[in-house]
């Protein structure tokens, strides 16, 4: 049986334990002169205790056979993950492909793969966005956006 209190409790418990260890290593200091790790340790410890309670609540719910209070809103991993991967990919290729081309590819993949738009429409919207963004951010605002190391290779 899936229990999301238990899942989130375990995750937060692991996170707070890690933070406690890190904070302890930073040095806790004394009451009159707290060290850099004092506050992070106190916060992480409190969070850890609360996470432990959440885990226990989850275990009790499983043992007693309770169903989740609210119907869990199912996670739509497919689209969500695809969008996040494309966003991270935009970051990865931003410097390499350069701002205008990376923007075109990013927009194109979002419109076509996630938005399920027709190829022609996706192409047109992506082109217009990339061109307008280039004029606005690079030509008008003069923002230091990368031109792309790939094109520099060809230039050389």
């Amino acid at each position: 049986m899936r229990n999301y209190n238990l899942f989130s409790g375990i995750f937060l418990l692991a996170l707070s334990l890690g933070a406690c260890v890190k904070a302890y290593r930073l040095g806790l200091g004394s009451g009159g002169s707290p060290g850099p790790g004092f506050i992070p340790f106190a916060i992480a410890a409190l969070l850890g205790l609360m996470s432990l309670y959440l885990c226990l609540r989850g275990v009790i719910q499983i043992v007693k056979g309770y169903t989740e209070k609210k119907a869990f809103k199912e996670i739509g991993w497919g689209k969500a993950l695809l969008v996040l991967i494309l966003l991270a990919g935009y970051g990865v290729f931003f410097n390499f492909l350069g701002f205008p081309f990376a923007t075109f590819v990013f927009m194109m993949s979002l419109l076509w793969m996630v938005g399920r738009q027709r190829l022609r429409l996706s192409l047109a919207v992506s082109l217009v966005t990339a061109a307008c963004a280039y004029i606005l951010f690079v030509v008008l605002f003069d923002l230091p956006l990368p031109r792309g190391s790939l094109w520099q290779l060809f230039g050389e």
Binding site: V83, M107, L110, L111, Q117, L121
Partner: peptide
């Protein structure tokens, strides 16, 4: 479906 790529682009 046309609006969200623009929102994501501006966020990035």
């Amino acid at each position: 479906p046309i609006l969200f790529p623009l929102i994501l682009f501006f966020c990035a």
